[in-house]
């Protein structure tokens, strides 16, 4: 009886996985079709990959997108980590309001973020393009970094910091030799998350990008509105591989972080 219940559950789960992955595999399979539509498979071909590599507009956009993601996540990681340190040190009423303000951009719908940033940039006279996209990406990545770093800061045993001060460390030494190494997994995880958020963002970018500048999501949107183009399939296959690599990287980092926190936890237990 129990066995049968299990198999029903597993069958259901298998169905969910099929639904989740079928569209993605579908894109990948047709990227190798020699036809021009996603209707009938016409035999294996690298043609669409060749088209993609020859498409200089697309290559420029890919480079733009990666550049924005790289810079935005880097700057967001720095500001977010400083923010997490500030939140950690803040007193009670301040701490809660800082946390709530931090989460505003996490819960706001993308259209609101996009529309309000558009008003903001227009009022400031910032020209829409690379700068406005980069600034918006930094802005919506910061809270993610804070949320990834803050738990690590809270996990850190305060006795470690006290011990460092007792041993004569300066503020800077405490930060660079004690605090930052122990929250490093959170910082890396924050960077990775920020990077993927930036790579994937569509709605906010769509609002604040001008005519001259485009990122991948916006470009895919405008091409998809014109219909099927198997070059996009080739692109999606490549992006799928990149996402897989990112996930594996993120998984390894968080695993290493897990082990490290366990060591800290054991140390805390010893102290008590």
């Amino acid at each position: 009886m129990k066995k049968q219940r299990w198999s029903w559950g597993k069958a259901y789960l298998a169905l969910v996985f099929v639904i989740l992955y079928a569209p993605i595999l579908y894109l990948v399979v047709f990227s190798f079709s020699s036809g021009q539509t996603m209707e009938k498979y016409h035999g294996f071909s690298w043609q669409h990959y060749a088209d993609l590599l020859a498409d200089t507009r697309m290559i420029t956009i890919v480079i733009n997108t990666l550049l924005v993601a790289f810079l935005a996540s880097l700057l967001a990681t720095i500001i977010g980590t400083l923010g997490a340190l500030a939140i950690k040190d803040a007193r009670r009423p301040w701490k809660n309001s800082l946390l709530s303000l931090n989460n505003v951009l996490m819960v706001s719908p993308d259209v609101i973020i996009g529309a309000s940033f558009l008003i903001f940039f227009t009022m400031l006279g910032v020209r829409l393009g690379f700068v406005s996209v980069l600034l918006s990406h930094i802005a919506f990545c910061i809270p993610i970094v804070v949320l990834m770093v803050l738990p690590k800061l809270n996990e850190m045993s305060p006795t470690l910091v006290d011990a460092a001060y007792d041993l004569g460390a300066s503020r800077w030494q405490v930060l660079s030799l004690v605090v930052l190494p122990s929250i490093a997994p959170g910082i890396f995880a924050g960077y990775f998350m920020a990077f993927t958020y930036s790579l994937d963002d569509f709605a906010v970018t769509f609002f604040v990008t001008g005519n001259g500048f485009s990122t991948l999501s916006v470009e895919i949107y405008s091409r998809a509105r014109q219909g099927i183009n198997l070059e996009i399939n080739a692109l999606s296959t490549l992006m799928f591989i990149v996402s897989l690599l990112l996930v594996i990287g993120y998984y390894l980092i968080s695993k290493r972080g897990g082990r490290r926190t366990r060591i800290v936890a054991v140390k805390e237990g010893d102290a008590q």
Partner: peptide
């Protein structure tokens, strides 16, 4: 591990997933 497999599709660009459905759902699609 299985949870990771459920979350994995969220790492794939939203536009691409939507685009896949244009092909899947089209009049002569799969």
């Amino acid at each position: 591990f299985w949870l990771l497999l459920v979350i994995l599709p969220t790492w794939i660009n939203l536009l691409l997933k939507t685009y896949a459905f244009i092909g899947l759902f089209s009049r002569t699609g799969t």
